[in-house]
Design a protein around this nucleic acid. Structure first.
Lengths: 333, 333
DNA sequence: TTGTAGGCGTTATCAA
DNA sequence: TTGATAACGCCTACAA
């Protein structure tokens, strides 16, 4: 059985196509009797309007896209789960549906570009790790508003970004480590030059300097559990002098803890480990991970609300939104 | 600047719209000089054909959708990460792009339905946990082939499903626990009546019966880390008699381990814990989790290849594909 | 309240 | 090798 079109329904109900269209989009303009008749025919044929035909006519898709990327061990960074979920929930109140694009390669990018060019996307939330000039260009050409979540923009201040207060969070963590007795603290971070890397590292350095500590050691590694393992290898050799390890993120911290334990180091007794993010798994490591929590749920909500303002042309007070963090003390320190 | 259409390009290049279309889709039918001319105009206007207009004309979208669902702590079950990735990789060889639909509520379902009805989807891979009659109905009406991954179909044998050998895997795990000295073994599982639940439970019962063990204890809980914690609470009260806990999945096992440790139980010395799945985190728990690995990468590949056969009308030998599992012994047992 | 005509951007079909 | 025409399914604008 062929798929029914508006034409079939119109004929079956004995009305014009326009009347059917009205029943779908503005039933209040049609007489009750006609509405009933048309609905019956639609039911009979199980008619579903084709979204792409509407869109071709210039209608909105009522869809917001998420741009995410996969890192090593995860299809979606565990950090973003809640963020995506809360953003989707906020958008739902405006009947906006959500769709995730995973940027893996040229092919997956072509899908996103096709969608953007086709009017299939009314708005976009771009997550940290997927920002690329050509993508924002595509969005701009198609007048698709977007916000950026998880990383700060320093120069392009016209881009709305929502991120955690990396510097303050890292300072909080360092202060805690120092105040509770750690002197030789190492910082394990990812490679790159994003603001979050820079801010957390600066916080680490400033904290050491202000406390007049002598030891200072930054290790760069891949941002993954395996990367944490590798970093821990290097740490082992310096075991005697290190009291604590401050990790750029929980995922790295998990790897650090694991490898240190495998090498016989007791955590936190010999070396304390501090993470950043507070991913769902953080409280299930042994010992449970002390970390600086990012309020991902709040970030998702703010991202959604900011995007909504952009979509509805409402004013936005601030394009650089910083969300506070919270130190969560568990057992690894 | 308005977005360029094929009409603009045609005018600019001094050819008909059809010729432009040919340059895009069948350049070999157009003279070299004309191709050059048209390409230049396309470049000049940065012209991108609108995918939805093509699709409205009956073209394929070259897109395969994934249907996934969120469970408690994870946006995407950690179990499916690799599976999705390997499926996407296999489909890529056929220039098929992939897109994930997260089935959260009616709204997100409406997006999927709209896409299916619009010809935006050429094929579908449905992951365990998202199977719903109305969804397969939508797919059938629109002639969209699909395969089901992660769970077996017993009755509807015309549906292609790819799943792990749950019974055999669980038997393997139980055999190992029993052969290495555990007598009082508890089974912590999820609630429901899916084949995987039934098969693993049956394997547990059969193993106990064949070994002539007396102790038998099945605890049902939510399929999450928190669910594992709750199950462990119940276990604590039976601490004296239990030697080992076999968990339906790693996610539950992680919660079980954590709560048992919090209550002072030493793992594996006092109680051994066995998982199922081998999610990426499994080797980072302390102690590292012994588990029955599902070959998710293989499952993803098979799913993709089976779907391709369906899409290309090639014969499929078997609709009920079972993938073997592997016991991975780590430290928790 | 309902209907007619035309077009959104592309391609299939046939003709030149 | 190229072009004219109609059509995909729906909706805007106007008319009745």
């Amino acid at each position: 059985m062929k798929k029914p079109t508006i034409k079939i329904i119109a004929k079956d109900a004995g009305v014009s196509e326009m009347t059917v269209s009205r029943v779908i989009n503005n039933p209040e303009l049609v007489s009750e009797a006609t509405v009933k008749k048309v609905l019956k025919s639609m039911e009979k044929y199980n008619y579903k309007p084709k979204m792409i035909a509407k869109i071709l006519k210039g209608r909105k898709s009522k869809t917001v896209g998420f741009l995410i990327s996969s890192r090593q061990e995860f299809y979606i960074s565990p950090f973003y789960g809640e963020c995506i979920r809360s953003a989707a929930t906020a958008l739902k109140d405006f009947s906006l549906r959500t769709l995730s694009f995973n940027l893996l390669d040229t092919l997956s990018k072509s899908l996103f570009v096709d969608y953007a060019n086709s009017g299939l996307l009314d708005g976009m939330i771009i997550f940290e790790g997927t920002f690329q000039e050509d993508i924002t260009e595509v969005l701009r050409v198609n007048n698709i508003p977007f916000v950026y979540v998880g990383e700060t923009f320093q120069e392009n201040s016209d881009i709305v970004s929502i991120s955690s207060d990396s510097y303050e969070g890292a300072r909080k963590g360092m202060k805690y480590l120092i105040n509770t007795g750690s002197k030789n603290i190492c910082f394990v971070t990812g490679t790159g030059s994003k603001p979050s890397y820079i801010h957390r590292k600066q916080a680490y350095l400033d904290a050491i300097s202000e406390a007049n500590l002598e030891y200072q050691n930054v290790i760069e590694t891949e941002r993954s559990m395996m990367g944490g393992m590798l970093a821990a290898e290097k740490l082992i050799k310096q075991k005697e002098e290190i009291n604590a390890v401050f990790c750029f993120c929980d995922v790295i911290a998990i790897g650090v803890i694991k490898r240190l334990q495998e090498r016989g180091v007791t955590i936190p007794k010999e070396i304390r480990v501090l993470g950043f993010d507070n991913i769902p798994f953080a409280k299930y490591t042994t010992p449970a991970l002390t970390t600086i929590a990012q309020d991902t749920e709040k970030m998702g909500m703010i991202a959604a609300n900011s995007l909504l303002k952009l979509m509805f042309n409402e004013p936005l007070e601030n394009t650089n939104i910083i969300v506070p963090t919270e130190l969560i003390i568990r057992e690894s320190t």
